[in-house]
Design a protein around this nucleic acid. Structure first.
Lengths: 209, 209
DNA sequence: CAAAATATGGAGGTCATCTCCACTTGTCAA
DNA sequence: TTGACAAGTGGAGATGACCTCCATATTTTG
């Protein structure tokens, strides 16, 4: 499952070198300030080789992203197995912030790619999303979390956290978002009948009058 | 204040044409699929003229963004003047989603710019942020909203909504985020002593083991 | 109206991206 | 081991987007 095509020993080595260098450059946050050709040199391979292994910047990013996501998913599963659902969710989300904080360069890179990319790294994201969905679902099942808000909303909030890395006091605000989300997720505040987000059309909405 | 430099009649006209076309292209979402040179043609001016008025894509985007933001800020002030604080905040946030929904192309464009840009449109964003901050502050003052979470967190969540425009059921999830944020903002759920986001160090955090 | 100031536009320089193919390296059967 | 075929390599150069520059055109002013 890890290797879907039998690569030649040679090719395998180059691919590895590329990925290793990519991780390095990602973490430094220099990914977009670097000519793609130069990146090949940096990794010690020719331009052609780089392009054969990873046809685009995005393809390379996705490959790196994959491992990153795998780590996070493992953590999610581990937490889910050892803590009460609500706590597992909370811990995971808090940990997520730590993680993004620790790998700012990577977060920046990914945010950029997600925003501009046309649905790239969809697969990698899907895995992470599944993990979050599972955590939320478990918490819903044991009654500590409301069931009328999709887990996707949580993903969206996380997305915002990752994308806004450059705000002056990112850390405090990121923690704030998590706090809001977690408290917002708690089961019904005013008794029981929590009305859906009905949205009564507000005022005039058209941008230009 | 609107015109800080006396432009020649001629120049003024071209600037206008550029902006008009820009708004159009933005809303269509084609902004990044278009050669910048071609955009000049499209607006009926020469390349040089385009570059003189807007040295970069970002500069052009910011100009468009400005008007957009002004509209939203007006709405915020208007709501704040006519509704109770909590309701004004809620209505504004819900309206924000409608607005982004209605101008998806623009939202997409802006998200891209915010993510990749190096702090561009900081000024435009600041105005919007101020509006949100004011709305939150008012609600805090009248006791309907907690005071231990920065308004910046709300901005961050909004950012996430704008940046994730391409998710399959964006609308439902966006509404979900707003719901979570609003409920999360309600003053203390469990009595009074709402503990700060303390963050007890979770598990192993280093990306690579 | 003439001259000075201001603005125009597009031809062409510069530079990152990506393709292509003559050559090297690895693999496998005899 | 060896030969021969497949798989992979790398970098020269085509491509095309971005931006600059300046001879020309348009406004404004005295």
């Amino acid at each position: 499952m890890t290797t879907h095509k039998p690569l030649r020993a040679d090719a395998q080595r180059n691919r590895e070198a590329l990925l290793a260098k990519a991780r390095e450059v990602f973490d430094a946050g220099d990914f977009f300030d670097l000519r793609f050709d130069d990146f090949a040199r940096l990794a010690g391979v020719g331009t052609g080789t780089l392009y054969r292994h990873f046809p685009t910047r995005e393809a390379l990013a996705e490959a790196v992203y994959h491992e990153e996501v795998a780590t996070l998913c493992d953590r999610a599963r581990q937490l889910q197995a050892t803590l009460p659902a609500a706590e597992a969710l909370a811990t995971f989300l808090r940990g997520m912030v730590d993680h993004i904080d620790a790998h700012e360069g990577l977060a920046r890179t990914l945010a950029t790619l997600m925003a501009s990319g046309s649905g790239t790294m969809a697969e990698g994201s899907r895995a992470l999303e599944q993990a979050v969905t599972d955590l939320v679902a478990a918490a819903v099942r044991d009654g500590t979390v409301r069931d009328d808000v999709d887990a996707g909303a949580v993903m969206m909030a996380l997305h915002g956290i990752g994308a806004a890395h450059d705000r002056p006091d990112w850390r405090a605000e990121a923690d704030g978002v998590i706090t809001l989300v977690l408290d917002g997720l708690r089961r019904s505040h005013s008794g029981d009948g929590q009305r859906e987000h009905e949205q009564e059309s507000v005022v005039d909405q058209s941008g230009v009058p």
